[in-house]
Design a protein around this nucleic acid. Structure first.
Length: 544
RNA sequence: GCGCCUGUAGCUCAAUGGAUAGAGCAUUUGGCUUCGGACCAAAGGGUUGGGGGUUCAAGUCCCUCCAGGCGCACCA
């Protein structure tokens, strides 16, 4: 419909003497009285043509040649908006299209099978996932689902590092707890070691299996290996519980083994973008418009995180991704400009990299803010959160908000609030329809009643249909903007329209033709809600 | 000190530069002998942190000030 109106308005603009540079855009007005689609083109073009907006709008409307079967009316309103109203026929026909498309209604081709990678979570295996990781996990996963519905070819990837100093400290943390468990006097547990209770549990598992035979075992042997194994299992378990699955787990270490890290060093040196000073190797970011140079290889010979990050992103390009999405927490905000500068310097198009940064989740417990730190173990884990409220609630809670907002989460209230949680509002609408369908089935058994959607002419019915048919547009715009929270809001509105319809009109009545038409409307609503739930990754209950 | 994010109803948050700034919770008032009341209908509640500017049009863009969060390592 947008395309149809665009063509018509464009033709009219040309007749009015408007240059091609002006392209009309259409949007759905917020207020229903303003029609079904509106364009501001008269206001945009008025300056170019030197004609007052309302007068230009009138000229455009006068030249329009519209199909009365689809367009019921055109108005000029406010400072010069042109508002279009669709015919009832148009809506009634659209309902049939929804039912015909069924589980694929809402699939749109924005992506054209573009090869896309979404990298998210990427936590190193040093401890359980926190609520903050949960936000990134839910967001990254849902963006992936959205992009798939918009016909992008998506790979979900988790990047991790199980080497280096942090893992040595992790292994030694387990070793010290183990020595405590078997009663061997050991040094005091250092403050900057991993304090979490899970360390002691891992130590206890080792004791149960090996007794005290690991007394002389080095930290980097069984202790580290076991810690990594158990923690990764725990992380994967949390993700699975949340409905998040990855296609690729990419180990940073392979970048070293395959010489790809060294290759980056060589290339940067060859381009004169790396130099040695005070025993360290520096990346000349100042030559690329950034503030100051950064160390990429320490004087000890160890690389900083920056270097493998660059090598990793270079790999992403070499693996053929056309769109590279990095989902990061706000604490990593400073890390990506260097990486982007580097991939650009290495000859890749940095515009293909889209960095999406989500702000922190602030946990409030009993009115006090809990500072999160894996090392100090005073965090709330994702599992603890999911023990309190269901995965559906967790997902929806994170998805309701834009990622730029710092959101507060009062754990104490989480459970009580979940009783009133908006996710139930959506699921209730779905379950209610399922119930109506069950009930209606008993009334229509053995009869063959045709559906005549022209019987749907009550305001609540038409409002609901209008809502439903915009679903593909919503998917397209949410995918393009990487903003799942707008889909959550849309589904909430759609559920609201359904509840309003339900209260105003009976579906199951003695008028079998009307009943058949309303059943069609119910099924179309169920279809849109169900498809939306699939994208958000929440369940679609037939009963609650 | 520098960079990024934020400041909208009592609380938690929405609002591709568009028309009358919207939801949920909380408060108040109505609505079930019929398809699920985890629902519906309605009311109150706002100088969009302050001040300038750009624009036909600013919560949205620019400048500045105030307040909060996160960063600013030869940690990741």
């Amino acid at each position: 419909m947008k395309q149809y109106l665009r063509d018509k308005v464009l033709a009219s603009l040309t007749l009015a003497g408007c240059p091609d540079s002006v392209v009309p855009t259409f949007e759905k007005p917020k207020i229903a009285e303003h029609g079904d689609l509106t364009t501001n083109v008269a206001m945009v073009a008025s300056k170019v043509l030197g004609v007052p907006p309302r007068k230009l709008a009138q000229t455009i409307v006068d030249h329009l040649d519209l199909d009365p079967k689809r367009i019921a009316g055109v108005d000029i309103a406010g400072p010069g908006f042109i508002n279009f109203r669709f015919t009832r026929d148009y809506y009634q026909n659209a309902l049939a299209e929804i039912l015909a498309s069924g589980p694929s209604f809402g699939r749109v081709d924005v992506g054209r099978r573009r090869k896309t990678q979404v990298e998210f979570v990427s936590a190193n295996p040093t401890g359980p996932l926190t609520v903050g990781h949960g936000r990134g996990a839910v967001f990254g996963d849902t963006v992936s689902r959205l992009l798939e519905w918009a016909n992008f070819d998506v790979t979900r990837e988790y990047y991790f590092n199980n080497a280096g100093r942090q893992m040595r400290v992790l292994g030694d943390s387990v070793r010290l707890r183990y020595l405590e468990e078997i009663g061997v006097p050991a040094q005091a547990f250092p403050e900057d070691y991993y304090q979490g209770e899970y360390i002691r549990e891992i130590a206890q598992h080792l004791k149960a299996e090996c007794g005290d035979t690991l007394k002389e075992e080095p930290a980097e042997g069984r202790f580290k290996a076991r810690a990594e194994e158990e923690i990764f299992e725990n992380i994967k378990g949390s993700l699975k519980r949340l409905g998040v699955a990855f296609d690729v787990f990419y180990n940073e270490h392979t970048l070293y083994e395959s010489g790809k890290v060294q290759a980056v060093i060589d290339e940067l040196k060859a381009k004169g973008l790396a130099y040695e000073q005070e025993g360290a190797l520096w990346f000349k970011t100042s030559a690329l418009g950034l503030e100051k140079d950064k160390v990429i290889v320490k004087s000890t010979g160890e690389p900083t995180y920056r270097l493998p990050d660059i090598a990793y992103h270079r790999e992403k390009f070499r693996r053929g991704f056309d769109l590279i999405i990095d989902v990061l927490g706000a604490d990593h905000i400073a890390t990506y400009p260097d990486v982007l500068a580097a991939v650009k310097a290495l000859g890749f198009d940095d515009a293909k990299v889209k960095v999406l940064i989500h702000q922190f989740v602030t946990i409030v417990q009993g009115g006090e803010v809990v500072k999160m730190s894996t090392r100090k173990a005073n965090y709330i884990t994702l599992d603890q959160l999911m023990d309190e409220v269901s995965a559906d609630v967790v997902r929806y809670f994170f998805l309701m908000r834009g990622i730029n907002s710092h959101l507060n989460f009062d754990l104490k209230l989480a459970k009580e609030q979940s009783e009133e949680n908006p996710v139930y509002y959506l699921q209730y609408a779905y379950a209610r329809i399922a119930s109506i369908v069950r009930h209606a089935g008993t009334q229509t058994e053995g009869r063959n009643i045709s559906r005549n959607f022209s019987l749907l002419r009550e305001p609540e019915e038409l409002e609901l249909i209008k809502m439903l048919i915009t679903f593909p547009d919503v998917v397209a715009s949410c995918a393009s903007a990487y903003e799942p929270h707008r889909l959550a809001e849309y589904l909430h509105d759609a559920a609201g329209r359904f509840h309003a319809f339900y209260h105003a009109h009976r579906v199951v009545t003695d008028d079998l033709e009307l009943m058949a038409a309303r059943m069609g409307l119910c099924e179309a609503t169920k279809c849109v809600l169900g498809n939306g739930f699939t994208i958000l990754g929440i369940s679609a209950p037939e009963k609650m």
